[in-house]
């Protein structure tokens, strides 16, 4: 029964991940003033990449890098409950809590570092070091907000956190904490102004420079599922989770549209600037939010 539940969660994450990725290309196309591709374009991109042959491989560590990243994304999806009560779509959340999920979010960039490191491509290594320094600065406000939510709910378990928001969801109860978490959520989703990791105009596409064919398809799929998991995390922590699938889709869609639109109208900070920005304003918001708890 649990296995069926896990498989269903993975299918939903995979489907919605690519749907949102296609939607992202369509929405930013509409801001550009053009039609943009069909919704399933990203899905057919990843299928095409699966049937393509890789041009080079750099040993077994190069294989393991994307596998570790994919495992990080999959575990993230499984440890976050989709619905706030009832039996189905709870996944492994009863075995873990918010702290486990926060730990698992670091697994992706780590796998990235190992895989790209073995390829030795200078642009890939530069992209990974940018990713890790930016991750350091991103985690600061996000963890402050997460600690605030845990203190307010009195426990790290997702069920209790979502129960505590039954009267008023955290987004309105603690707006400062939500603001800090939302800014670093933009960075986690790789949206401008924090998308310095794979900036094509600077480092060729950062960590994904050497990956081709099936590696690239795996990277695309895991990043689609990972972004759906992050949307899920934000909804569960700050919007009181969802009673049924329809409400879940609506809430994640709203957050997703906000992130896409902000991402398409701001220029990109350089690595140092994004770290400086994230340490100042979002962290200040987090600290003040914690004080007002």
């Amino acid at each position: 029964m649990l296995l069926l539940d896990l498989l269903l969660m993975l299918l939903i994450a995979y489907g919605f991940g690519f749907l949102y990725y296609g939607l992202y290309r369509n929405l930013s196309a509409r801001v550009h003033g053009r039609f943009g591709p069909s919704l399933a374009q990203s899905f057919s991109d990843s299928i095409k990449l699966f049937v393509k042959e890789e041009s080079t491989t750099f040993g077994w560590m190069f294989y393991l890098g994307p596998v570790i990243m994919a495992s990080g994304a999959v575990l993230n999806v499984l440890f976050i409950p989709f619905l706030n009560q009832g039996e189905s779509l709870q996944g492994l959340s009863s075995y873990g809590n918010l702290i486990v999920v926060l730990y698992l979010m670091v697994l992706g960039p780590l796998g990235n570092a190992l895989g790209v490191g073995s390829s030795g491509n200078p642009f890939g290594v530069m992209g990974v070091t940018r990713g890790l320094t930016r991750l350091l600065a991103l985690e600061l406000p996000f963890y402050l907000a997460a600690i605030g939510v845990m203190i307010d709910a009195g426990s790290a378990d997702f069920g209790i956190i979502m129960q505590a928001q039954s009267t008023q969801s955290n987004m309105f109860a603690h707006p400062l904490l939500f603001a800090a978490a939302f800014i670093s959520f933009l960075g986690f989703m790789g949206k401008s102004p924090f998308d310095v990791v794979g900036a094509p105009q600077e480092v060729y596409s950062g960590p994904a420079t050497e990956f081709s064919g099936k590696f690239l398809a795996l990277l695309m799929s895991q990043s689609a599922m990972f972004s759906f998991a992050k949307l899920l995390l934000m909804v569960n922590l700050f919007w009181g989770g969802a009673d049924h699938l329809g409400e879940l889709v609506a809430k994640t869609f709203v957050l997703f549209v906000a992130a896409t639109f902000i991402g398409s109208v701001y220029a990109r900070f350089s690595t140092v600037q994004s770290v400086e920005f994230l340490i100042r304003i979002p962290t200040l918001l987090g600290i003040v939010g914690l004080a007002l708890l």
């Binding site: 550009h32 003033g33 401008s192 998308d195 105009q201 398409s264 109208v265 220029a267």
Partner: peptide, 16 residues
């Protein structure tokens, strides 16, 4: 210039 700082929207408008 806007492409070099990742602002794709400006490039789409100005080339139109």
């Amino acid at each position: 210039q806007s492409g070099s700082v990742g602002l794709g929207t400006v490039g789409q408008w100005s080339i139109y």
